[in-house]
C-alpha cells in the first residue's frame, strides 16, 4: 500500500491542492468579508498617515487634471476639444480609476508576500480586496467629479446616473486586469518595472487629454480600430453621459460590456491556474 492510497483510505486530501474553479470561487465568496474589511482598513490606515486624510482621495485627481489641463490646453491651442475643462476632468478621473486598480492589483500578491506565506486562503481575495478598495475610492471621486462638472457649467441631466452602470462595467474590467496582472507580477517581478510604461501607453492612446476622433480624422481605418479600444470606449461613454455637447454611440455600451466580461474570464482563469504557486519562496 503506498502513501496516496493510505491517505485516500483515511479520507485525507492533498494539502494545497487547487480546488476546481467553481469550488474555488465559492471559497473566495465565503471570504468576501475579509476582502471588504481589508479594503476599508487599508484606506483608513493610508489616510491616517496624511494630515488631510480622506480629502486626498478627491484632491489628487483634481490636481492631476489641473496640471494636464493647463499643459495640454496650451499645447493644443485652438484645436482644443469643446468644453475643454470638463473634457479633461472626466477623462482624468475615469482613467485614474482604471490605472489605480491595475497598479495596486498588480502588486497585490507581491506586496502581501508575508501574508501569502503565513496564512492559507484563496489568494484571489488579495487582488479582489484592491478592486474593492479602489471601488470605494471611486465613489468619493465621482461625487467630487459631479460637483466640479456642475460648477463648470454642465447642466445636471438624468443621464448622469448612467455613470453607475459605467462604473460597474469598469469595475468588472478592472478586476479582470488586476487578476491577470497580479499573476504576472507574482511570477516575474520585472513586470512592476514595466507598469509605468503600460500605464503611459494606455494614458496617451485612449484620448484622456485630446479628442482621438479629431486627430485621426484623416485615418478613418484607424478610427474604426478605436471602436474596440476598451479604455477609449469607457472615456467616450463617460463624457457622453456627463458633458454638454457629447454623445454616446449606443453600441459602445455593448462593446465595453463585452470587454469587461472577456477580461474577467481571462483574469479569473489565469489567476486560479497558478493558485498553488503564489506562496513559493523564490
Amino acid at each position: 500500500m503506498n502513501a496516496a492510497d493510505f491517505a485516500a483510505e483515511n479520507n485525507l486530501h492533498r494539502v494545497g491542492a487547487r480546488p476546481p474553479l467553481h469550488r474555488y470561487l465559492q471559497e473566495m465568496w465565503e471570504r468576501r468579508d475579509f476582502a471588504i474589511t481589508m479594503a476599508k482598513f487599508k484606506i483608513e490606515a493610508n489616510n491616517q498617515k496624511n494630515r488631510l486624510g480622506m480629502l486626498w482621495i478627491g484632491l489628487s485627481p483634481v490636481l492631476t487634471a489641473a496640471v494636464y489641463g493647463v499643459v495640454f490646453g496650451v499645447l493644443q491651442g485652438d484645436r482644443r476639444p469643446d468644453n475643454f475643462a470638463s473634457f479633461i476632468i472626466a477623462g482624468v478621473f475615469l482613467f485614474q480609476y482604471f490605472t489605480n486598480t491595475m497598479n495596486n492589483g498588480a502588486k497585490s500578491i507581491v506586496s502581501n508576500r508575508a501574508l501569502v506565506q503565513s496564512l492559507a486562503f484563496p489568494r484571489m481575495t488579495l487582488p479582489m480586496a484592491t478592486v474593492v478598495q479602489q471601488l470605494l475610492n471611486v465613489t468619493v471621486i465621482i461625487s467630487v467629479m459631479y460637483v466640479i462638472l456642475f460648477v463648470l457649467g454642465n447642466p445636471i441631466k438624468l443621464s448622469w446616473l448612467l455613470i453607475v452602470p459605467l462604473v460597474v462595467i469598469m469595475t468588472v474590467f478592472n478586476a479582470g486586469v488586476a487578476l491577470f496582472m497580479s499573476r504576472l507580477t507574482a511570477h516575474t517581478r520585472d513586470i512592476t518595472q514595466l507598469l509605468p510604461i503600460i500605464n503611459r501607453f494606455f494614458f496617451y492612446s485612449s484620448g484622456v487629454l485630446f479628442p482621438i476622433d479629431r486627430i485621426l480624422s484623416s485615418f478613418p481605418a484607424l478610427l474604426q480600430v478605436y471602436d474596440f479600444h476598451p479604455i477609449y470606449e469607457f472615456l467616450v461613454i463617460g463624457r457622453g453621459v456627463l458633458l454638454q455637447g457629447y454623445t454616446v454611440p449606443s453600441e459602445y455600451w455593448w462593446y465595453a460590456s463585452g470587454w469587461a466580461a472577456l477580461l474577467l474570464i481571462i483574469g479569473t482563469v489565469t489567476f486560479w491556474a497558478a493558485e498553488e504557486s503564489y506562496g513559493r519562496v523564490d
Binding site: V15, G16, A17, V116, Q117, S118, A120, E276, S277, G279, R280, V281
Partner: peptide, 8 residues
C-alpha cells in the same frame, strides 16, 4: 510551510 500547503 509545506504541511500548511504554502510551499509547494
Amino acid at each position: 510551510r509545506a504541511i500548511v500547503g504554502l510551499t509547494p
